[in-house]
C-alpha cells in the first residue's frame, strides 16, 4: 500500500506525520525525520520518513544515528 506524504499514522501509541511517500510493502522502519524542516503544528506528532532495512546489520547501522519510531508493519492510518 502506498502512503502519501502528509498522511497521519499511529504506531506504538505515537502519532506521526509522513514527510515523504512510502510503500508499506517494503521492509524497513519509519524513523524520525530531522533533516528536513517540519512545520506540522502539533508538537506531539512526529515527522517521519521510511528507511529501508532488510537485515540486522542494516538495522544496527540505521539505529546508530537515527531515532526509530517503529516497524512499517506496526503502523495504522488514523
Amino acid at each position: 500500500m502506498l502512503y502519501k506524504r502528509g498522511s497521519l499514522l499511529k504506531c506504538r501509541d505515537k502519532h506521526v506525520v509522513l514527510m515523504e511517500d512510502f510503500d508499506s510493502d517494503a521492509k524497513g522502519y519509519l524513523i524520525l525525520n530531522f533533516w528536513e524542516q517540519c512545520d506540522y503544528k502539533d508538537i506531539n506528532v512526529l515527522p517521519v520518513s521510511f528507511a529501508k532495512c532488510e537485515n540486522d546489520r542494516e538495522y544496527y547501522q540505521l539505529k546508530k544515528d537515527n531515532i526509530i519510531v517503529g516497524r512499517v508493519d506496526e503502523f495504522c492510518l488514523i
Binding site: F34, W35, E36, Q37, D39, D42, I43, L46
Partner: peptide
C-alpha cells in the same frame, strides 16, 4: 524526546508547550 527540526507553527507550538 526528539521532536524534529521545527519551523513555522511547529516552532511556535514548541515554545508554547
Amino acid at each position: 524526546r526528539f521532536v524534529g527540526w521545527c519551523t513555522g507553527e511547529r516552532k511556535e507550538e514548541f515554545f508554547k508547550s
